[in-house]
Amino acid sequence: MNYLAALFFVVGIFFAVTGHIGLLRAPDFFTRLQASSTCSTTSVLSILVASMIISGLSPFTGRVAAITLFFAISSPVSTHIIARYAWEEGIVPWRRLK
Protein backbone atom coordinates (compact mmCIF):
# COMPACT_ATOMS: atom_id res chain seq x y z
CA MET A 1 0.00 0.00 0.00
CA ASN A 2 2.82 2.36 0.87
CA TYR A 3 4.44 1.70 -2.51
CA LEU A 4 1.21 2.75 -4.27
CA ALA A 5 1.14 5.96 -2.22
CA ALA A 6 4.80 6.57 -3.06
CA LEU A 7 3.99 6.11 -6.76
CA PHE A 8 1.27 8.78 -6.51
CA PHE A 9 3.66 11.16 -4.67
CA VAL A 10 6.23 10.69 -7.45
CA VAL A 11 3.57 11.34 -10.11
CA GLY A 12 2.57 14.50 -8.22
CA ILE A 13 6.15 15.76 -8.06
CA PHE A 14 6.67 14.95 -11.76
CA PHE A 15 3.63 17.00 -12.80
CA ALA A 16 4.57 19.90 -10.52
CA VAL A 17 8.04 20.08 -12.10
CA THR A 18 6.59 19.73 -15.62
CA GLY A 19 4.08 22.49 -14.95
CA HIS A 20 6.80 24.88 -13.85
CA ILE A 21 8.97 24.04 -16.87
CA GLY A 22 5.95 24.79 -19.08
CA LEU A 23 5.31 28.05 -17.22
CA LEU A 24 8.83 29.21 -18.08
CA ARG A 25 9.06 27.95 -21.67
CA ALA A 26 5.56 28.35 -23.18
CA PRO A 27 5.13 30.97 -25.92
CA ASP A 28 2.20 33.11 -24.70
CA PHE A 29 -0.16 33.89 -21.83
CA PHE A 30 -2.79 31.21 -22.51
CA THR A 31 -0.32 28.36 -23.01
CA ARG A 32 1.49 29.38 -19.81
CA LEU A 33 -1.83 29.28 -18.00
CA GLN A 34 -2.51 25.82 -19.44
CA ALA A 35 0.85 24.56 -18.20
CA SER A 36 0.41 26.01 -14.72
CA SER A 37 -3.14 24.69 -14.39
CA THR A 38 -1.87 21.23 -15.34
CA CYS A 39 0.70 21.57 -12.60
CA SER A 40 -1.82 22.64 -9.99
CA THR A 41 -4.57 20.17 -10.88
CA THR A 42 -2.78 16.89 -11.39
CA SER A 43 -0.01 17.30 -8.84
CA VAL A 44 -2.33 18.37 -6.03
CA LEU A 45 -4.83 15.65 -6.98
CA SER A 46 -2.08 13.00 -6.92
CA ILE A 47 -0.81 14.12 -3.53
CA LEU A 48 -4.33 14.12 -2.07
CA VAL A 49 -4.98 10.62 -3.51
CA ALA A 50 -1.68 9.43 -2.01
CA SER A 51 -2.61 10.78 1.42
CA MET A 52 -6.01 9.05 1.14
CA ILE A 53 -4.23 5.76 0.39
CA ILE A 54 -1.87 6.18 3.36
CA SER A 55 -4.63 6.95 5.86
CA GLY A 56 -6.69 3.92 4.80
CA LEU A 57 -10.34 3.59 5.81
CA SER A 58 -10.81 6.21 8.53
CA PRO A 59 -12.73 9.47 9.13
CA PHE A 60 -9.56 11.29 8.08
CA THR A 61 -9.94 9.86 4.55
CA GLY A 62 -13.45 11.32 4.35
CA ARG A 63 -12.09 14.75 5.24
CA VAL A 64 -9.34 14.48 2.61
CA ALA A 65 -12.03 13.44 0.09
CA ALA A 66 -14.03 16.55 1.03
CA ILE A 67 -10.92 18.72 0.59
CA THR A 68 -10.37 17.07 -2.82
CA LEU A 69 -13.95 17.91 -3.79
CA PHE A 70 -13.57 21.55 -2.72
CA PHE A 71 -10.27 21.72 -4.60
CA ALA A 72 -11.98 20.31 -7.70
CA ILE A 73 -14.53 23.13 -7.45
CA SER A 74 -12.23 26.05 -6.58
CA SER A 75 -9.23 25.32 -8.82
CA PRO A 76 -11.02 25.56 -12.22
CA VAL A 77 -12.92 28.65 -11.06
CA SER A 78 -9.72 30.56 -10.34
CA THR A 79 -8.15 29.44 -13.64
CA HIS A 80 -11.33 30.40 -15.49
CA ILE A 81 -11.40 33.88 -13.92
CA ILE A 82 -7.82 34.59 -15.05
CA ALA A 83 -8.45 33.20 -18.55
CA ARG A 84 -11.75 35.03 -18.94
CA TYR A 85 -10.20 38.36 -17.93
CA ALA A 86 -7.46 37.91 -20.54
CA TRP A 87 -10.02 36.90 -23.18
CA GLU A 88 -12.24 39.92 -22.44
CA GLU A 89 -9.19 42.20 -22.54
CA GLY A 90 -8.64 41.03 -26.13
CA ILE A 91 -5.30 39.26 -25.75
CA VAL A 92 -4.86 37.31 -29.00
CA PRO A 93 -3.93 33.64 -28.38
CA TRP A 94 -0.68 32.50 -29.93
CA ARG A 95 -0.90 30.13 -32.93
CA ARG A 96 1.67 27.83 -34.43
CA LEU A 97 2.74 28.95 -37.90
CA LYS A 98 2.25 26.31 -40.56
Binding site: L33, S37, T41, T42, A72, H80, A83
Partner: peptide, 11 residues
Protein backbone atom coordinates in the same frame (compact mmCIF):
# COMPACT_ATOMS: atom_id res chain seq x y z
CA UNK B 1 -15.53 23.57 -14.64
CA UNK B 2 -14.66 20.03 -15.73
CA UNK B 3 -13.30 21.28 -19.04
CA UNK B 4 -11.08 23.74 -17.14
CA UNK B 5 -10.04 21.08 -14.62
CA UNK B 6 -8.95 18.75 -17.42
CA UNK B 7 -5.40 19.74 -18.39
CA UNK B 8 -5.06 21.05 -21.93
CA UNK B 9 -8.41 22.82 -22.12
CA UNK B 10 -9.58 26.05 -20.46
CA UNK B 11 -13.10 27.47 -20.67
Amino acid sequence: GSITLTPGTIT
